[in-house]
Structure formats: C-alpha cells, structure tokens
Design a protein around this nucleic acid. Structure first.
Length: 509
RNA sequence: GGCCUCAUCGUCUAAUGGUUAGGACAUCAGGUUUUCAUCCUGGCAAUAGGGGUUCGAUUCCCCUUGAGGCUACCA
C-alpha cells in the first residue's frame, strides 16, 4: 500500500507594514518556485497581529507589487479580477486578525494541557528582571515568576481583571531538535529556550502561536522563511508537538546582506522593492537576480525566465551563507533583459519614463507628442528612438536623459566638441559642409542609415578623409554629445530635414 | 554576555579526499568601433589561521579567529 504523496503547499506570510522588503520578495520567490516546481500551491497569509505597526492599504500595495513581479498567490489573500483585495481558498480566513477565535480555542487547549500558563507580570517587572539577569551574566530570559501560580491565584487575578499574557511552558530539561532542509540537523537545549509569550494582553497571538496554528490548519507542507527565524524554530517544533500535530518541513534561507555584511537594511541602501521597480529594473531581472542570491543551478547558466526558474528550482541548491546584495550585478542582468526584449514592449515600458522627464505626452496608444517641440510622434517613430538606446541602457529610468537630444529642437553644446584628435573646429565644419552637400541630394524616402553609410564611404574615397574625421563631427552635430549612438542611426531617426538643419547649425557655430 | 548559524577571488558562486581551484559581475589590458555601450580576446584576483585524520585535505574532525542572526506582549 502506497501513501499518496503529500500535496506541496508553501506560503508567504508578510506583515502589512507599508513597503515590500526586497528580502521578502526573495523568500516569496523561493516559496513560489518550490510550489510551482512540485505542482503545489502557493498561498499568501497576512500577519497583522502587531496592531501598533499596521499601515493602511499596505496589503493592497503589497499585492500590486507582487502582481507586477508575477508572483500571484494561488490561495489566501489575493487580488480579484477587478484588482481588489480579496480572499480565496478553503482554509480561510487568511488574515490573522480575522482568526482570533481560532487562536483562543487552541491556546485554551494548551492551557488545559498545562503546556501554557497565564502570566501577570508587568512590562516594568519584566524589564527589571531582565536587567538583573543580565547583570548576573545570565541569559535574559523570563524568570518564571508566574510559572507556578496556583489555579486559585490565577482565577483570582483573572476575576480581578488583571492584565495578562499567556506563555508557553518550555520543558526544563531535554533537547528539541529538527532537520532543516538548508541547515541540516539543529539541536538545542530546552533550558535555553524562553517561555515565549503566545497570547498578548490585547488578545492577539504572537507570531509563534499564529504560525503554528495557521500552518497546521492551512496544511502548509514546507515553511520556507528567513534565517532570522532559525533560533525560534525549536519553540515552533515544541508547539507542534504539544498539539500533537505533524511538523512541517522547514527551510531557512540565508539572509541578504549589506555591503558590510550586516543584515540588509534601509540604512545602507534601498530595500524597498517598489523603488527598484520605479528606477526601471524589470520584474524578471529582479527575480533573476534574487534567484541567484542564495541559490545556484549547479551549472554555469545565469539568465532564467520564470518558467525556467520553476523547472530548475530545488531547495538543495540553496546556500547556507548570506549574500551581499550587489546592485552592479543587478544592473548587468537588467541590461541583458533590456537587450533581449522585444522593441515594442520596451517602448511601452519606456513611455512613462519619457513622460516623467517631460519629453513626451501620450495622446493614445499609437500617438504621442514631443513636449519640447509640440510635434506629433507615432509609435513607430518612438520605436526608432528607443532602439537607439536599447543596447546601451542599464535601466529604464536612463532612457529620458539619453534620448533627450532627439526630442530637442536643437541640441546645445560647446563648439569645441566638434574638434576631434588633430581635426580643428574649422576642419570639422568644412567636413560637415561636404557631408551636407552630399546629403542634400538624397531623396527623403532614401534617407536611411544604410544609404547614409554608403554616402560616407563614398566621401571617404573621394576626399581621402578618415572615418573619424567625418563621423565625429557628424555625430556631435546631431547629438551634441560626447557619447551617443551612431550618427547614421540618429540621422535616420531625425529625418533629412532635421538632420540637415543640425549640420547646418554646427557649420555656422 | 548567552544561544544559534556561517566562512572559496572585491561581489555572486562552482568543484573534488588527488584539479593549473572553474564560471559570472566588477576591474584592468587589447581587438572591433567616430564616441559611449554592445561584442570578441586576454590579465589580475580566493580556499581566514592553527592543529589533527590521511599516502594526500580547500574538502572530514577539533580549536582559534572573524562575520551574521536571535536574545520583545515585532514579525
């Protein structure tokens, strides 16, 4: 008789605190990939038990970021067809603040079994006790003050309405151990585990209680979460045992680090996923980068589409040590994706950045207006403009600055820029005149980069001038820049009339 | 302080009880190119230290050192 293999169910359980930490996205990604790879379910549960840190609309924001990234949960808190936050699945509610009666029921069970007890200690007393223990160089754990209150005492205090919490009763001896899918066997002395608060005085559960109850009830098969939870995992194991429940598989993920190797934090850089998106990092590039921070495919491949990630991902490829979040590599990956991208899609993605930089105004999906000159621009023309930069961009936010010269009526630059190596400004202008005269003869319809290239080749032969002697001044006259795309491409995009106007201007500077 | 975890180029990482310790990013040099970018070629660059085990250790064990995490009625 063979058992049906257990359905793989993973979850991502964020707290709605207002922004989406890039490290959370990596955790979510690994959960997502693991579930997908195993034909399982990926769900999202909102952990809003800390009432003091709630931020309005945080869940809505988080789900939108996840939708952009393509990490939509199958179950739990999701965005419905109309883009509204809703819940889906058989194990709801998926928002912890809506599950209070459930936690109360189970914590009562713990109380009944004497695996938990009421604690009436004030915050001040706890603070003092902690300091005292620290002064004696003892671990700053709860001192067990309320551990042995009699039933009567507890009853009396409860009757009197004294504020209280419920703590977990940890065995004084023995060990708690478990096997982590990443870190291997973990074993810890019970005497070193604190009598953790399970239920706070406001009636909300702590993370520890809620995690165990929810992940049991929601049939989570694999808990994949950050390494910061490793030290408290034994408490969770113990709780599962207290309830008599099967312990899920745990996989703790190494932390993402600042350049100085401390835990990735706001102070030392950008940790808000939204700001990477705003800067023009592509969702697929962000995921690809995050994938490689802590996981490797055991081959030398580095660029993976989401489908490839799903096909390849497994927990055995996860590293044990933290990885520095190194933006240079992200830039490279992003550049790779931009270069590979279909031009039309790239244009669509660039439009908001061009609008933001005040270069472009969108009239319809196919019609735009150059805000600097008031001219109309077709989608096709915009494609030509963007293609000038496709190979050169690292992130979308750079597009405006690099193509601004195309939008301008006339680029502004110092005439000295026309000079190149031993070519003086006057030489450059003379060469430009030669080019101008030849270009003028080309029909508007034939004003293509191929024909222009041919033209310059002809001129080189005819005049004996070197490539750079013609190209450098031409490029500067058209772009006004020290570094820019090639002059033929620019000329084609500008068209004959504007090209000639710009050359003429350079000649008469 | 206590507990837990980790340790290969600057960074992300691969590899094996026997390799010239591999790849990528970054960097440097050269080529292509009017410039920058792309692209191509090449260079620099690592097993933290000390003990074991072993014919042989970067790999296995121990210690030291270093780094990080946790140590809340936050998650």
């Amino acid at each position: 008789m063979t058992e049906t293999p257990k359905k793989i169910r993973t979850r991502f359980a964020p707290s709605p605190t207002g922004y989406v930490h890039i490290g959370s996205v990596r955790s979510a990604l690994y959960n997502y990939l693991f579930a997908r790879h195993n034909d399982g379910t990926f769900s999202l549960r909102v952990e809003d038990t800390d009432r003091t840190r709630l931020v309005e609309d945080a869940v809505d924001y988080l789900l939108k970021v996840f939708a952009i990234l393509g990490l939509n949960p199958d179950e739990g808190v999701v965005l419905d067809e109309r883009g509204k936050v809703s819940q889906k699945g058989d194990f709801g509610p998926y928002i912890q603040s809506e599950r209070l009666p459930i936690y109360q029921k189970y914590v009562q069970e713990l109380l009944d079994k004497d695996y938990a007890y009421y604690c009436f200690c004030s915050q001040e007393r706890l603070q003092l006790a902690r300091e005292e223990r620290q002064a004696k160089k003892l671990p700053p754990m709860y001192d067990g003050h309320c551990r042995h209150l009699s039933k009567e005492e507890v009853e009396a205090k409860l009757q009197a309405g004294e504020p209280h919490v419920i703590r977990m009763r940890i065995p004084q001896d023995g060990f708690t151990e478990f096997d982590d899918l990443v870190y291997g066997h973990i074993k810890i002395k019970n005497e070193l585990i604190d009598d953790q608060v399970l239920m706070k005085s406001d009636g909300f559960p702590t993370y520890h209680l809620a995690h165990v109850i929810d992940d049991h009830l929601m049939q989570t098969s694999h808990v994949i979460r950050g390494e910061e939870w490793l030290p408290s995992a034994p408490k969770h194991i113990l709780l599962f045992q207290y309830f008599g429940w099967e312990v899920p598989a745990y996989a703790h993920l190494p932390l993402l680090l600042n350049p100085d190797k401390s835990k990735l934090s706001k102070r030392q850089g950008d940790v808000a996923t939204g700001s990477y998106l705003d800067k023009g990092y592509l969702p697929e590039a962000i995921l690809n980068f995050l994938l490689l921070l802590g996981w490797n495919p055991k081959t030398e491949e580095e660029i993976f589409s989401l489908d490839e990630m799903i096909a390849r991902f497994d927990l055995s490829g996860v590293n044990k040590y933290g990885a520095v979040f190194n933006v240079e590599k992200l830039d490279w990956i992003n550049g790779m994706y931009i270069r590979k991208m279909e031009l039309g899609k790239l244009v669509t993605l660039c439009v908001p950045y061009l609008e933001q930089d005040g270069l472009l105004e969108k009239i319809s999906d196919a019609q735009f207006r150059n805000k600097l000159t008031g001219e109309n621009i077709s989608f096709e023309k915009l494609q030509q403009i963007v293609s000038l930069e496709q190979e050169r961009m690292k992130k979308l936010s750079e597009v405006g600055e690099s193509v601004r010269f195309v939008f301008e009526e006339m680029p502004q630059y110092e005439k000295e820029l026309l000079a190149w190596k031993k070519i003086t400004i006057e030489d450059a202008q003379k060469n430009l005149q030669t080019i101008y005269d030849e270009m003028e003869k080309i029909e508007i319809a034939d004003f293509t980069k191929e024909n222009l290239s041919e033209l310059i080749n002809r001129l080189k032969e005819k005049t004996g001038l070197g490539t750079g002697e013609l190209m450098w001044p031409l490029r500067v006259s058209l772009s006004g820049l020290k570094n820019s795309p090639g002059p033929f491409e620019i000329a084609e995009v500008l068209g004959k009339e504007k090209t000639l106007r710009r050359i003429s201007r350079a000649i008469h500077l």
